[in-house]
Amino acid sequence: MSGGTSDDKTAARAAGVPVSGPVPAAAGGESRGQRHHPVRWLLLCVLSCVVTFFVWVWGALSGGLDVGETCALRGQPYDGAYRGEHLRELDQIFPLHDKCNESYDLVPVWVNPALVLLSLVAVGSLLASCWTTFVRVRRFWRRRRAVR
């Protein structure tokens, strides 16, 4: 099979027959550098940051403009004294809380864990993007020095 066409080689690979020579990217032979491209990690970072923002807005606005009315709509008593004592807790950026009373929070229970996980994905993918960029630049300079 050493002198066959690329269709012959693709068919041989599909049948499990080893074929010498480089595997084209279209046949599933992506090189390691293409599979772990820094731009993909950066896109994942941006996407997770955007989703994190929208989840935070969802949680921050979950109480509506009139918290007392929202509590009444949910069938919970509005405790103004409790909210007055814990005003600092209710105005935090993280963790999000918007409580009607001591036992009922208007912010959905999934919002704060989602913010943590999405933030970790954003930071991790940013680090992965930096690392893969560093590795690609290092490989480039090594190849360039070897040519000279």
Rank of each mutant, 00 (worst) to 15 (best):
V23F: 00
V55N: 06
V19T: 12
L126I: 02
A60L: 04
R142Q: 13
V51N: 07
L120D: 09
V46F: 13
L126C: 07
V51I: 12
H37Y: 13
D66L: 10
L65M: 11
E89D: 15
C100M: 04
Y104I: 01
V123W: 11
S129P: 07
G3C: 07
P24W: 05
V67P: 06
V135P: 00
V17Y: 01
R142T: 10
R35E: 09
E89Y: 01
S2E: 08
V111I: 12
R35Y: 11
V19E: 14
A12S: 08
L61V: 12
A14V: 13
H37E: 14
V57M: 14
S48P: 11
F53H: 11
G75I: 01
P18I: 09
R148T: 05
K9E: 02
G59Y: 00
A25Q: 08
R142I: 07
L117G: 15
V116C: 02
L96H: 05
Q34S: 11
W56Q: 06
H86P: 05
V107P: 14
P38I: 06
T132Y: 10
V19H: 04
P38T: 05
H97D: 12
V147L: 04
V109L: 11
V121R: 10
S20I: 08
C71A: 06
G75F: 04
R32F: 06
R138H: 13
R136S: 09
R32Y: 06
R136M: 08
W110E: 13
G59A: 03
Q76L: 06
G124V: 06
L65T: 14
R145W: 02
H97T: 08
A25W: 09
G75D: 03
L87V: 04
D105V: 00
Y78D: 14
Q76G: 01
V116N: 03
W131S: 08
R136D: 12
G75H: 03
E89P: 01
L73T: 01
G59I: 00
G33L: 07
V135G: 00
G3N: 14
D79H: 00
H86K: 06
G59D: 03
V19A: 01
L43C: 12
C100R: 02
L120W: 05
G84H: 05
L65P: 13
H36K: 05
A25Y: 05
L127C: 11
L118D: 14
L115T: 09
R88E: 15
R148P: 05
V135K: 13
A114Q: 15
W58E: 09
A81N: 04
L120I: 03
C71D: 11
W141H: 14
V50P: 11
S125H: 05
C45P: 05
E89L: 00
F134P: 10
C49L: 11
D66W: 01
S62V: 00
V57N: 10
L106P: 15
R35L: 07
N101E: 09
V39D: 10
A27C: 02
S31F: 02
R13T: 08
N112F: 07
N101S: 07
S31D: 15
R142K: 15
S48T: 11
V23K: 09
A26R: 02
